[in-house]
Design a protein around this nucleic acid. Structure first.
Length: 467
RNA sequence: GGUGCGAUAGCAAAGCGGUUAUGCCCCGGAUUGCAAAUCCGGUUAGCCCAGUUCGACUCUGGGUCGCACCUCCA
């Protein structure tokens, strides 16, 4: 049975779906005004892994990951670029998809954009107003009256008193309570028509938190199973979502809240405000996308993950070991089902270990350790079956699905020797070896090594890979 | 200041009240013309102080340090 660490309970709990065999899951996605960085990569990969594991466990999953395409930063960036917000957001949505695809992230079932759900948001705000939880402030904004909602703070474990004590910012004057947050922002004259929607409170645009509440309930219902996102969204974003959804619908919003840990650089959170971030595409210039995915899944999703070249190099070496064990195993026949689906015999010992690791709060480091044990088994026994099992299990994590040779020999584009030049050198070396001219053979091997090519002589002949 | 999380070998990273985590690195052996890859074996752990226990890296208490949230952030 799957157990999930539920932020709401601060503990691991048995996962029981609301509807038998079905899981409804929502994850907070990106605000699209810039390229995704490694922190975004982690959310996408982590919840992709959760999505895959739920499906592999036999659930029919409805996975929603939203796109925030209206927001202060988007408006600002569009103005700086002198382009429409639509042009700007579309460009970065496309870029996000490219990055996600590269990392082997499956598309969610729905990727709703905030701008397409404004009517639902307005409806929800009206309901909150009706329930006495929202009010129109003097400045024209509609705010949420935090004090009126009983359970405020239950997710983040904060009390209103604690929050007040820690206030660091000058309070916006027109709020009844400093902790109240905006549901509807009134339009300013200076703003483009593109960012204004009509409402009964006047022209304006939605606040950030209401997006997720409205899109979540529209696509998944008022009460759904899993809601995920980065740990930094726990407060205030997710706390506010609960206040909105439960305040409007008068029922439980989400059963399991999952939060992934941060990516760090030099032990500090990678973030836009600190400016210490690396974009996905930047990293992919230097490292294979699967190495990056493996690097992420090798750590537990709730633990901090330090980024450095050394760690990526290490991940690359480890992944190389797995692929080496797979040499000669054909790629899965394409065309049907999920990668690895139908191939895994879950009663086999390694598969059982893998499953219990994954069922224990998605313990991918443990699951990956099983992969290495299986690689050892495959190498030792030279069993094609073991290798096939390795590939199938790894497939559940979205790993090891490429042809081993392609992975091991890939990366020629960045200035290395091309494949035909390598083949020519290998032929020359074989000739030298036949003539017992080992000095020449070793010279060629050394030359290739300096070009980043490692040779391996086997009974079947000489193979090579890139270091 | 409030709240929460963490501290495991050279690096990274898990489980577990007693029995090999795992990967990279390092050392020895097998294999190889020599290598590489692979296999076999080995070295290097559990922040500090108390307590519980026959026995603690694992449980409890205290301390120290680190990180995060309390402001937009995945």
């Amino acid at each position: 049975m799957l157990r999930i660490y539920n932020t709401l309970a601060r503990d691991k709990q048995d996962f029981k779906p609301i509807e038998a065999n079905k899981v409804r899951m929502y994850v907070c996605g990106m605000t699209v005004y810039d390229y995704c960085h490694l922190g975004h990569a982690r959310v996408m990969v982590v919840f992709d892994m959760v999505y895959r594991w739920l499906k592999a466990s036999g659930y029919d999953v409805n996975y929603v990951r939203n796109i925030t395409d209206i927001d202060d930063k988007i408006i600002k960036r569009a103005a700086e670029n002198r382009e429409s917000i639509h042009t700007l957001t579309q460009r970065f949505i496309d870029a996000m998809h490219q990055d996600a695809d590269a990392l082997g992230v499956q598309r969610p079932d729905h990727e709703p954009r905030a701008t397409q759900f404004v009517p639902q948001m307005l409806e929800m705000i009206a309901q909150l107003e009706k329930n006495g939880l929202a009010y129109l402030a003097a400045d024209g904004d509609v705010n949420y009256a935090v004090r009126k909602f009983d359970g405020y703070g239950k997710l983040s474990g904060k009390s209103l008193e604690d929050l007040r004590a820690g206030e660091r910012v000058e309070v916006a004057s027109d709020k009844n309570d400093p902790l109240d947050f905006v549901l509807w922002k009134h339009a300013k004259d200076s703003e483009a028509e593109e960012v204004k929607w009509d409402s009964k409170w006047g022209k304006g645009r939605p606040g950030w938190h209401i997006e997720c509440s409205a899109m979540g309930s529209e696509l998944l219902g008022k009460h759904f199973d899993i809601h995920g996102g980065g740990a930094d969204l726990q407060f205030p974003h997710h706390e506010n979502e609960i206040a909105q959804s439960e305040g409007a619908h008068q029922c439980q919003y989400v059963n399991y809240w999952m939060h992934n840990g941060f990516v760090r650089v030099d032990n500090e959170k990678m973030s836009k405000s600190l400016g210490n971030f690396f974009t996905i595409r930047e990293v992919l210039k230097k490292y294979d996308a699967e190495v990056v995915r493996f690097f992420i899944l090798r750590a537990h999703y709730r633990s901090p993950l330090n980024y450095s070249d050394q760690h990526l190099d290490d991940a690359k070496g480890a992944l190389t070991r797995l692929y080496t064990a797979l040499k000669g195993v054909p790629s899965p026949t394409s065309g049907r089902g999920i990668e690895g689906e139908g191939v895994v015999d879950w009663n086999a010992p390694y598969a059982q270990r893998f499953k219990s690791a994954m069922d224990d709060d998605l313990n991918t480091p443990e699951a990956v350790a099983v992969l290495f044990d299986l690689a050892n088994e495959a190498n030792r026994s030279q069993s094609e079956q073991a290798a096939a099992q390795l590939k199938a299990l790894a497939g559940v994590l979205g790993l090891l699905q490429r042809d081993a040779q392609e992975f091991l020999q890939g990366g020629s584009s960045d200035g290395g020797m091309d494949d035909s030049a390598i083949s020519a050198q290998i032929e020359a070396r074989i000739a030298a070896k036949k003539a017992k001219n080992f000095a020449e053979a070793d010279r060629i091997r050394k030359e290739l090594l300096e070009a980043g090519v490692v040779l391996e002589d086997t009974a079947q002949g000489t193979s090579w890979r890139r270091a």
